[in-house]
Design a binder for these strands. Structure first.
Lengths: 232, 232
DNA sequence: CCAAAAGTGTTACTGCTACACCCATGC
DNA sequence: GCATGGGTGTAGCAGTAACACTTTTGG
């Protein structure tokens, strides 16, 4: 039991495939949305998160960056590793371990990026406040679960994001460079699935020091225009 | 660019090896300690975190449980996934992606478990409060960095644990079933690397509702005996 | 002037810190 | 009694929630 360990080469073991699955989130028209892809293989017709295999010479972060370029023509933005899923039966194609990432993109940076690919869609998320798995709302209005364990992945991404709203400036990742406090509150409310009190929200955000006023006012407001703010 | 995607089989891609690396932490004599193993292969003589390959038919969680059984004869306890490390050059043996987990074990449950294996050691951690990588203090007193990117993994585990102390009952995982508030404070101080105020700490813990008094008193105290508490 | 949304003042509550103090035990 | 660590009371400060209120715009 305490015998000297023998050193075994890497080739002694069957190797799993490793993929990166991406939860690309945005807030559009006050609703939390996620990028999904219609599968054509074993689970044809089902919707899933976009993903791809980790190439043998690229890091996980590089795989995500490649996915973001290929699927949404996006160079930068907020990206963070979420969790790694490795149950042996999670993918019907074989043993696939998936490292999940989530990315946040302002809605205005997505326009024209993903539209051209017919099997990709940006769908609203129906995320309960309790423990149930979230579903997506397809363009035709149908409510649908995601394939594989992707519902679980999406749920974890939303949970992580909700937690981060409380103590970080992560909400700003979903807004353009200049934004009003109302827009920021809309983003928070869409993610949390709850209404927030305006005065408390304003002061909390301003006290944090994550944003600074510009002195500029929004254009084209129906009523009193709000001041525009900027990050940091 | 918007062409129909071709479905490629898993065998189209070279596959990386996948390992689980384990950060087993405990607090012994008021010091944060980690389980490390002396390597005999490419990095012979260096110390690293214990780890092992993910077998083709086991989940990641099962791999961790197997490691805990083999390295420390431990059945249960607190275990949580930490992060997945995947830079192509992180392991000199080839392309190895490592899913890091951390585990918390009370010091009294480790006695007699890992001692028998000569290349395993439970070493004190020298973790700075700033950004520097932590080092381990070998039994002979030498301060040493860990091999590969394991210093980075250890640093992340300590950071995660420090964060969790604030809002969860995770400190209790490092204590026996019955414990005093002083012992719990010692655990927090060892992990945070800082002294805490006694009255504030007591009340914070009791208000949380994570622990309840038993009415029992500790034995063999030199002075006034403290009350013993229990989880939940 | 009115409607609607932006933005502010006031109060109260809660969680935490700091400091002083009392309590129970072995010697 | 005394030293030592266990345990409590009180005051103050910071962050936040609730509510009422004022301000600024387009029509």
């Amino acid at each position: 039991m305490a015998a000297k360990r023998t050193v075994r080469p890497l080739t002694d073991f069957d190797r799993p495939s490793v993929t990166v699955d991406l939860v690309l989130l945005t807030v559009r028209d006050g609703a939390l949305c996620v990028l999904v892809i219609r599968r054509e293989d074993q689970v044809a017709g089902e919707w899933a998160l976009p993903g791809g295999f980790v190439h043998i010479d690229e890091s996980l972060d590089e795989t995500v960056a490649r996915l973001l370029r290929d699927k949404a023509h996006l160079p930068g933005g907020f990206v963070e590793q979420l969790y790694t899923f490795g149950k042996p039966d999670r993918d019907p194609r074989g043993r696939v371990i998936s490292v999940a990432y989530y990315a946040l993109v302002p809605a205005d940076r997505l326009e024209g990026g993903i539209v051209e690919a017919g099997d990709l869609a940006l769908t609203k998320v129906e995320a309960s406040l309790s423990g149930a798995l979230p579903a997506v709302i397809l363009p035709d209005g149908r409510l649908e679960r995601l394939a594989f364990d992707h519902g679980e992945i999406l749920k974890m991404a939303i949970g992580r994001l909700r937690g981060k709203l409380d103590y970080s400036a992560v909400g700003l990742e979903l807004l353009p460079e200049l934004f009003t406090l109302r827009q920021l509150q809309d983003v928070h409310e869409a993610i949390l699935g709850a209404r927030l009190a305006k005065p408390a929200f304003r002061r909390k955000m301003l006290d944090r020091g994550f944003l600074k006023p510009t002195g500029l006012l929004e254009k084209g407001a129906a009523f009193r225009p709000a001041e525009l703010y900027r990050r940091v």
